[in-house]
Design a protein around this nucleic acid. Structure first.
Length: 107
DNA sequence: TCTGTGACGATTG
DNA sequence: ACAATCGCCACAG
């Protein structure tokens, strides 16, 4: 994987504030690689278990938990709720929590 | 080269 | 709201 892309994704994900969420596609766009949402997911899937990256704040574009039904998904739900994000079933209210970075707000 | 495979996304019925 | 499709892109075999 392009190290530039990897670093950009790490930086962007790390910048998502607690209580807010983003999506794979959005992170990819901010990293300068539109349509690479799948790779954001791939990168996160390859993160070491001890990572300090807030990977749990990244959801699918429709607000669904990508790993719903898996152990990782439950961990994600717990972490989100611990930050005050309400998770209903397999989804969260993106409209309410979606992070709007300055770079994007300007447009 | 071709095919299958994703922690994806937008469109359509 | 839900499911089926299709487009997307890098990688493994």
């Amino acid at each position: 994987m392009n190290p530039t892309f990897r670093e950009a994704v790490y930086q962007i994900v790390a910048a998502i504030p607690p209580g807010s969420v983003s999506s794979y596609g959005q992170v990819a766009r901010q990293a300068g690689f539109p349509r690479h949402g799948r790779f954001v997911g791939r990168l996160l899937s390859q993160l070491p278990a001890q990572t300090r990256l807030p990977w749990h704040r990244v959801l699918r574009g429709d607000g669904h938990i990508a790993l719903a039904g898996t152990p990782g998904g439950e961990e994600q739900c717990r972490r989100l709720q611990a930050e005050g994000v309400v998770v209903l079933g397999q989804r969260v209210a993106m409209k309410r929590y979606q992070w709007q970075p300055d770079a994007v707000r300007e447009q």
